[in-house]
Simulated scan of single mutants.
Amino acid sequence: MGIPDYWIKLLKEKKDEEWSMGDMWHTLTNRRYGEPHVAYCESHDQALVGDKTLAFRLMDAEMYWKMAVDQQSLIIDRGMALHKMIRLVTLATGGEGWLNFMGNEFGHPEWIDFPREGNGWSYEYCRRQWSLVDNPSLRFKFLNAFDQAMVRLAQEARLLNNPPPFPLNIDETNHVMAFHRGGLVFVFNWSGDRAIMDYMLPVPQKGEWRVVLDTDNARFGGFGRQDVSMPHFTDGDGNLSLYLLPRTALVLKRVGSAVMARRLGRED
């Protein structure tokens, strides 16, 4: 319960610019080595009446009025960006298994409340609204598409069968977190307003690297500001130069798995 409790506390008590990369890394990776753990960023308790799902905590009532694809909302933009990033970083760092409560993968806005005396034995909230993700005019489909791509990437890379993540850079100044696991490099820019040109990052192997997952991809409800087909080459010191956009995450893989790169990084 440490990880979901951490996300609740962080979102309730800290402004975005106050988030500590060190605290985040410590919470996500603080476990006994060799003892398998199941990671999750929100528990079933958060989907029950009286509490809020991660998506609802991020976007709250705005989800009722501004989730149409043709509507604009800074609250929804922030919430969707962080929803994708929080799920990705939790899956990639939190353990050797991944747990999701039904509907949370596409940001279901409401709770579940089973029939009981306190609600007059009502069935009104005793359901998940699958129609939300099936409606092409709503943004829930984007979160669902991202979740599918994220899980597929983890499966194909056998990510959770690999040793725990190794930090490459925990950058408090720029709010950047980067780590390596299972042949993949994960780079998170948690800043809400700072785009960073030519961010130099040491990687485990020299050569050509390609983006295989970009949270800002348009098919995930992002703005599609990066050309994910562009290769990245290490310099003589084994560093990559990356363009990091605010509230986005990139996953890169060294060339040698071009099939995965095409499937996960180049679909529009």
Rank of each mutant, 00 (worst) to 15 (best):
F140H: 13
Q205E: 15
R219G: 05
G207P: 03
F146G: 11
D171N: 10
A157P: 11
L252D: 01
L159S: 11
M150C: 13
D193P: 05
L201T: 00
F166D: 04
N162S: 15
M197F: 10
G236I: 10
S191F: 07
D237I: 00
T248W: 06
W209Y: 03
F223N: 11
L240V: 04
L168W: 05
M230V: 10
N144R: 14
R247K: 08
L240M: 07
L168G: 09
G182T: 00
F223S: 14
S191L: 11
F188C: 12
A157F: 14
M230T: 12
G207N: 01
N144D: 14
R128E: 15
D171K: 10
K206N: 10
L244C: 10
P231E: 06
K141Q: 15
F223Y: 12
L213Y: 05
N135G: 09
L168M: 13
N169H: 03
P246T: 12
S241I: 06
L242V: 05
H180M: 05
P163H: 07
L160N: 03
G221L: 01
K206I: 02
A149D: 04
G183L: 07
D227G: 09
T215L: 03
L240F: 07
L160P: 03
P165E: 12
V228R: 15
L242G: 08
V185G: 01
R139S: 04
D216P: 02
F166Y: 07
A195R: 03
T215F: 00
S229E: 09
G182Q: 00
L143Y: 09
L184I: 05
Q226V: 13
L201V: 00
D216I: 04
N174V: 07
R152S: 15
L252M: 04
A218K: 15
P246I: 13
G221T: 05
N169V: 08
A249G: 01
L240T: 04
F140Y: 15
Q155Y: 08
G224D: 01
P202G: 06
D147V: 09
I196C: 10
F220I: 09
E156D: 08
I196S: 12
A154N: 08
Y243V: 14
S229L: 06
L168T: 09
E156C: 07
N161C: 04
L153P: 06
G182K: 01
